[in-house]
Every structure is written in C-alpha cells, then in structure tokens.
C-alpha cells in the first residue's frame, strides 16, 4: 500500500516539476532599449565598440553610423578602442550609460581624438500624422554656433553650438531647400532638395571640421503600427489536437494503472 502511495506521490512531484514551466508567463519582450552608435570624431581612427566587454561594432570609421541595436535596460559600460587594439591598448574612450526599456538612444563619439567624449541623446520614435520630426546636432569641433533653415529664410533651429543636439521640431512633410549657416549668415552646408516624409523622424548631425563640414542625415523612425495586423478568422485553422492526444494518453494511463494497481492489491 505504501508503495502505491509513494508512486502516486511521485506522479504529483512530476506534475509539480512540469506545471511551473507550463504555466509560466514567458514574456521576454519589453525590457530592451535601442542604441545606435555614431563615429563623429574627425581625426579619430576607425574604432571597435565594446559594450560590457563584447564587441558590438567593429571597424567603424569617421562618419559611420550604425543601425539601432537592442540592449537590455540598465547600466552598461561602453568602451571604444582603435580598431583591432582591444587587449593590446587602453580604450580611447570609456563611459557608463544607463538605458531605459522601450527608449531609443544615439551614442556619438565626438570632438577631436585628444578630447574624445561620448554624447548620448534620447531619440524619438513617433511623429504626428502628416508631419515630419527633425532635430539637428552640432558635432563640428571648433566651428561657430549655427542656424538651420530654408536658404535665405528664417531659421528653424537657431544658435546650436558644439556639441549641442536640439530638441525635435515638427515640419510639414515636403521637400525643402535647407542650409546650415553660421549665426551671422555664412553658409556652411547646402542641403537643397531635402525631402522630409510624413510620419518620419530625422536627425541631422553636422560632422567634420570647420573647413570640411558634412552632414549625416539619419532616419530615426517611420510610421509604424503599434501591433501586427489581425489577419485571420480561424476558418481554416489546423484543429488543435492537443486536447484529443492528451485525453487519449490519459485514458491509456488510466487503463494501464487499473491493471497494474489491481495486480498489486491482489498480491
């Protein structure tokens, strides 16, 4: 009799082992942040970027911008090495950064090599319907403060100084002849024919040197739904046979148990 009870107890134990796994709410998404990295230091060599000791970017040269990469929310150590020198030389830059779940960030390595620093900004991912969202970053060391606006027209962003990144502003979607000019009106960069599409979010980062300025115009985000489309009514769904199979196994086990337990009790 005791044997029977103990074998039954064993089954309960087995159930106990499986049940938590079966009932656990396996929802892993939702605790990640997005981070992209920009090499905006005009005289720095090509670099490798390590996050918490593992290489995430290799061989990024000046003006390189990576796509967003997922990082778990929390604090991370970001180390930048001259390409291929990890383990042989000290990093050219080491910084800690805390990222929040569901947020997007740009980490830009800026200024000349001897003053290299990491500039981290939080990025937006949504624009109003029919509008485009834009911001401007001034990453040209030694260049004066700048305005950005239509050529010869009123500035949309004014007085951005190195190493500042403006807030986002919303513009009507359309094609603009924009320029980056010093606050006294001297054109630094001609951005004629820049098309800003509705629902998109842009970052324009001025990079390079005062003599040789350039712009990195990045698309941070575009019009996206918050969830996937509901594309089925179940009329042709494979019938889920789990219930039938499980019932069959259960009945078989009951039959086997009946034979087994009866023999035991007769003995």
């Amino acid at each position: 009799m005791k044997k029977l009870l103990s074998s039954l107890a064993a089954f309960v134990l087995v159930l106990g082992v499986f049940a938590p796994a079966a009932f656990a709410d396996n929802h892993s998404g939702g605790d990640m942040a997005m981070v992209r990295i920009i090499h905006a230091s005009p005289d720095a060599p090509a670099v490798d970027v390590y996050v918490d000791g593992s290489a995430v970017v290799e061989g990024a040269e000046f003006k390189a911008a990576t796509d967003y990469m997922e990082l778990p929310a929390g604090e991370h150590t970001i180390e930048i090495y001259a390409a291929g020198t990890m383990g042989e030389q000290d990093p050219v830059l080491s910084a800690n950064a805390t990222v929040e779940a569901g947020m997007a960030y740009t980490a830009a390595a800026i200024d000349n090599l001897e003053n290299l620093q990491l500039k981290i900004t939080q990025d937006e991912t949504e624009a109003s319907e029919g509008m485009a969202k834009v911001r401007v970053g001034h990453f040209i060391p030694g260049a004066p403060a700048v305005d950005v606006g239509p050529i010869g027209g009123d500035a949309v962003f004014s007085g951005a100084e190195f190493p500042m990144v403006t807030d986002y502003g919303e513009l009507e979607a359309g094609t603009y002849d924009l320029e980056v000019r010093t606050t006294d009106g001297t054109q630094l960069l001609d951005l004629s024919g820049t098309t800003l599409e509705s629902g998109k979010v842009y970052s324009a980062f001025a990079v390079g040197t005062a003599d040789s300025p350039d712009v990195l115009l990045l698309e941070d985000s575009s019009a996206m739904p918050s969830s996937m489309p509901e594309t089925g009514f179940g009329g042709a769904a494979d019938t889920n046979n789990a219930f039938a199979y499980a019932a069959l196994l259960g009945v078989l086990a009951m039959g086997a148990g009946f034979v087994f337990f009866r023999k035991r009790s007769e003995a």
């Binding site: 499986f18 259960g250 087994f260 337990f261």
Partner: peptide, 20 residues
C-alpha cells in the same frame, strides 16, 4: 486501485495537455 488509476490518468492528461 480504481481511484489510483483515475488519478494517474488525470495526471497524465494534464501533464501531456500542458506540454502539447
């Protein structure tokens, strides 16, 4: 023995249903 067999059958059913 009947009770045990029924209990066993139920256990197998529940476990296999969760897995499947």
């Amino acid at each position: 023995h009947i009770l045990y067999s029924i209990a066993l059958g139920l256990l197998v059913f529940i476990v296999s249903f969760q897995l499947l």
